[in-house]
Amino acid sequence: MPNKRKVELRQNKDGYSVNFTAMASPCEVLIQTQDKSIAEQVAHCVSGEVWRIEDKYSRYDKRSLCSEINNNDGKRVVIDEETYLLLNFSEQCYQISDGLFDITSGVLRQVWSFDSVSGECQHFPKAVEVNKRLNLVDWNSVKYDQHSITLPKNMELDFGGIGKEYAVDRCILLVKAITDKPILVNLGGDLAVTGPRTNNQPWHVAIEHPDCDALGQPKDMIVALNQGALATSGDSKRFLINEGLRYGHVLNAKTGWPIMHAPRSITTVAPQCIQAGILATLALLQGAQAEQFLTEQDITFWARR
């Protein structure tokens, strides 16, 4: 994969933009400066950090730490501090969501495979298949400490629910150390800014409508962002329809089934991208009550149904 990694730097009226592909998503960085050397430093720093996180935590990459943990037959694997902190964060999300958010739920994808082109689930699983996998979803049986993790055999960790958002926040921290110029980091729609643009102007961010390719559908929404982060959960391109019912791609870690009656997508705002991402995911997991849930928690959001 590394040989396909390319970073494009382009100058425009407002500064520089950086484009690259990582985590199966188009990534973009906007830097409000005309100083090319700063833009180059930022481009190098962001792309390097995102690819580093991808290489370390992707469950699709056989050489990743994530794969090493998942394929170690129940034996102990040594971890570093970053991994420990991510596990701790996952633990806290598990606790505050009362088990709805569980990074061991990745095994459910073995029965719920969404076609990458059509988005449809090719094969609607039987309850017995789902339940077999569900036995392997149990964060509580994962033992870890500051130095190592032991994952029961056949269980899997999936950092997919937080990896991209984590990368956004890491990049924001890193680029702030390079320059105080306004910067926006957008990894496939999950994004954060270092602060307002020059003269305290907000960044205008378009939130893509899930059905944006369909005719007669509402256009993108524009959100003004001065500070903090936006993350979107839900994806109209990944769904399944069974017996006339549309199921989203978010799976309930407790039942093993996709959530029904959830909005197509939810975008939330938080100081950090990882928080926005979790909020949006937890809201989707509330199904029909998603909006009510966010309103009760006094969270700024945009939902599309």
């Binding site: 902190l85 701790n88 964060f89 806290q92 505050i96 938080a270 006094d298 969270i299």
Partner: peptide, 15 residues
Amino acid sequence: INLKAALSVAAGALF
């Protein structure tokens, strides 16, 4: 649960 506050604490520890 004040979700925002709980997540802030969790993210604070992470970063």
